[in-house]
């Protein structure tokens, strides 16, 4: 099976500063692993959602794929060609086929450029299209904006309109994959629906694959074919969205789903306490155990291996939900 995008054991490291002493090299600190060995595959024309709390490394992973942050370990293959890792051909192959949709709708548009200039930029950078002006009109029409928006500046757009311009820019070179970083963050529910419908429509018409980074699980449930749950830079559960929503295995996934559920009546206390631990001091064993209500003795010492059930799902948990005989290891 050849996926559109295949990531194998990807890691991204950042230097961990460490104050003046660290900067002078007197007391070098080990680097922080923001992404710590992630593997996933994305099929053409489908949507894959990466979910997790702030600091789970999901945005860093997205940026690593398009080369905005360097890859420390692992491989990225796009359409079978290696773009990062041993024998990589570089990002050239990727630039035109992969676009990124940024989180901040207005902030990702250059404030001193008109919409026309912003939308024509991909064509100019890659030296394609004889008439960028016409392409701009086509793109505006594609995302449902009137032609006269071309003359506006970003600050003259509403949040929803700016988001559409961002989508139009991402679509410019007819990419095969669009990486969307929190595309619905800060949007009102009515506008959010419009944007997601637009993305679904574009996927149906143009066969675009989306890698969506989000913490909004409701959105994931409606639009993603597959999903991965990230915690401290690792995928703790991964699989088909419908399967994970109906029966989460990892306790973290379970807690996230419970937190996202819209109660009609008042729910009890939060399912998980505390916050994401620091990447500098990763807990031993299963990294989720300090917050987990189901931790066993071995969770404190032994990192759980990957339990894979065909291609449908995989997870890393010693005491998974929905499996009989708690305490007994569910897989190998």
């Amino acid at each position: 099976m050849s996926a559109l995008l295949a990531i194998e054991d990807l890691a991204v490291r950042f230097p961990s500063g460490g104050g003046l002493a660290g900067r002078l090299g007197l007391r070098p600190l080990p680097p922080i692993e923001a992404v710590a060995g992630v593997s996933l595959a994305l099929e053409a024309g489908t949507t894959y959602a990466l979910v997790g709390e702030s600091g789970s490394g999901k945005s860093t992973l997205a940026r690593a794929i398009v080369g905005l942050v360097p890859v420390a370990r692992g491989t990225i293959r796009f359409q079978g060609r290696s773009v990062a890792g041993p024998g990589a051909e570089g990002l050239g192959a990727l630039r035109r086929d992969v676009a990124i949709l940024f989180q901040d709708p207005v902030g990702s548009l250059s404030p001193r450029r008109t919409v026309r200039s912003i939308l024509a930029e991909p064509f100019r950078v890659h030296g394609v299209a004889a008439d960028p002006g016409r392409e701009v009109q086509r793109l505006l029409a594609e995302v449902g904006l009137a032609a006269d928006f071309a003359h506006r500046y970003p600050h003259q757009l509403s949040g929803g309109q700016a988001r559409r311009v961002g989508v139009a820019r991402a679509l410019a070179l007819r990419p095969k994959l669009v990486i969307a970083d929190e595309p619905t963050a800060g949007l009102d529910v009515s506008v959010q629906g419009e944007l997601l419908n637009l993305m679904n429509d574009l996927q149906a018409r143009l066969g675009i694959a989306f890698l969506m980074i989000t913490h909004n699980l409701h959105v994931v449930r409606h639009v993603a074919h597959r999903m991965g749950v990230m915690y401290l830079g690792r995928l703790v559960e991964e699989g088909a969205t419908a399967v994970i929503f109906s029966s989460p295995r990892h306790r973290y996934t379970e807690a996230l789903l419970a937190a996202g559920a819209e109660p009609d009546a008042r729910a009890g206390g939060p399912a998980i306490r505390g916050e994401v631990p620091s990447l500098i001091a990763r807990p031993p064993g299963c990294e989720f155990h300090p917050r987990c209500g189901f931790a066993l003795a071995r969770c404190r010492t032994e990192a759980p291996g990957l339990t894979a059930i065909g291609t449908l799902r995989s997870f890393r948990c010693h005491n998974p939900a929905g499996v009989a005989a708690p305490g007994a290891p569910a897989g190998a």
């Binding site: 905005l68 990002l91 676009a99 990124i100 989180q103 901040d104 250059s110 404030p111």
Partner: peptide
């Protein structure tokens, strides 16, 4: 570190172009 500069870089625009068109006007 502004997103619009990241956006230009993600597009593959060379540094001088990013500086002249996206950074300098600001």
């Amino acid at each position: 570190h502004a997103e619009f500069v990241l956006a230009a870089r993600a597009l593959g625009a060379p540094a001088p172009r990013v500086l002249a068109l996206d950074v300098m006007p600001n």
